[in-house]
Design a protein around this nucleic acid. Sequence first.
RNA 1: GUGGCCGUAGCUCAGUCGGUUAGAGCGCCGCGUUGUGGUCGCGGAGGUCGCGGGUUCGAUUCCCGUCGGUCACCCCA
Length: 417
Amino acid sequence: MDILRGIKGAPDWLPPEAGAFDAVERAFLDTAALGGYERVRTPVFEPTEVFARGVGASTDVVQKEMYTFEDKGGRSITLRPEGTAGVLRAALEAGVPRSGTLPVKWSYAGEFFRYERPQAGRQRQFTQVGVEALGATDPVLDAEVVLLGWEALKRAGVGEMTLRINTLGDRVDRPAYHERLNAYLDDFEGDLPPDVAERRHLNPMRAFDAKAPGMAEIMAGAPLLADHVNDEAKAFHEEVCGLLEAEGLVLTHDDRLVRGLDYYTRTTFEYQAAGLGAQNAVGGGGRYDGLAEDLGWPEPFPGVGWALGVDRTLLALGEAAAPPPRAEVFVVAADPTLAPQAFGLVARLRRAGVAADQAFAGRRMKAQLKLADRSGARLALVLGADELARGVVTVKDLASGSQREVADAEVLAAVTG
RNA sequence: GUGGCCGUAGCUCAGUCGGUUAGAGCGCCGCGUUGUGGUCGCGGAGGUCGCGGGUUCGAUUCCCGUCGGUCACCCCA
C-alpha cells in the first residue's frame, strides 16, 4: 500500500526551512508592531459572500480560485483567499467605525487558500502577514503603510527590491473611465481574447493585465485611468509619493498596475524581489475606500493596507534565509547507566533557560558526540562514572576541542558565562 | 483550465543503443579508539527503476494510458 500523501499545493515546512519561515513571519509582525499595528486573528473561513462581494465578482480570485463548500447547515463557506475582506468584515461587525479613535491599525498573519496550479512561489495554501489601517483617508497614512511594508521586507533580509506604485482614483472616476475604455475596446471586439471580451463589461481595466498575443498593441493606444483621476485624488497621490521619496524610496510609477482585486481605490502598490521566477511580487496592497460599503456598511469607511507573502519572501531570500536557533548545550552520558543523571542535567539546564539536548536510544559515547557536533551546540557536557564520583562534569568546547572539569554546582555558570 | 519537462536508494542524480548480479555522491549504522565529535580508512543496511497495460523470447529501458512532481501561461502573495 502506498503511503498517504498530502494535498497538492499544500506545502509541508520542515526543518531547517520551517525555522527560517518563522523568522520571516516574525520580522514582518515585529515591523508592524513597531508601527503601532495591533494583532488580530480572524477565521480562516468566511461566508462566501464576504469574498464574492468584497473581492469582486470580476476577479480571477472569485471566479475560479476559491475553495468553496457547503457546510452541514447548507451555508456556503469559503476558505479565505486573501485577508482584507475578512479583517474589514470583523471590524464592521465589532462596530469599529463608530467606536474608538480612528484610524484603527491592525496586523494579522495566517494561511490563505487559492485553487490554482502550483508553481515556483505559488501554492494553494500560502502564508501572508498583513496590515490594515482603517478609518482614515490621509496621504501620510498611505505613505506609512507603504514604507512599513518596505521596512518589513528589509528586516526579513530581502536585498534587491523594486516598489511599483500607481493611483486608481476614486470610485466616482471609474464609471466614466470604464465607459471610455469599453468604447475604445469596442473597436477591437473581434481581436479580443475570450477572457477579456467576457470580463471587460464587469471591469475593463483587467484588459491591461491580459498578455495574449496582440493585446499589448491594442492596449498601447488605450485611454489611461491616470487621465481620468480627479484632481483631489491626483494631489493625494503626489503627496504620498513625495513622502516616500523623502524617505529615500525609489518609486517605479506604473500606470498599468491595476491589481486583481476590485476593491482598490487611489493608492495601489507592489513590492517585487529578485530571484523568484515568474511570480516576483513578494507583497502588495493599496487603499480600499469603498470596500466597507460593499460589505454592507451604510456609509464610507476607508482603509489602506498590504499583505506580504511569507513563502515568497523565503524564496527570495534563498541561501540568505536565517538559520534557525539550535541547542546551546549537548549532554553526553559516557555510560548507559548514567541516563538518569544526564536526563536530570538536561532538565536543570532547560529550567535555567539554556537550550539543551541529549542523545537517545542508548547510543555509544562516540555517537553521542557526533550528534552533539551535528546539533550545532557550542558545548558538550560529558557525564561519566568518574565525574560523578568526584562531583564534577566535563565541559567540552566543540569548536576548539578543549575541555575542562567543572564542579557540579558551577555547571550553570560555566555554561552561561 | 492549457502547455513543456521530469518520475531509478532517505536525498541529489548517473546508467541500461531492450539482455542475465542496477551504480555514485551525500546521509544512516558499525569497526579502526575498552569514555571523546568534526578529518581519514574499511565494512554494512537500504531499490516492486511511480503505477497499469501493450510490443517482445526478454521491458527499469520502446509505445499507450494513468498518477505524481516541476516549470510556464492566466492571475496573484
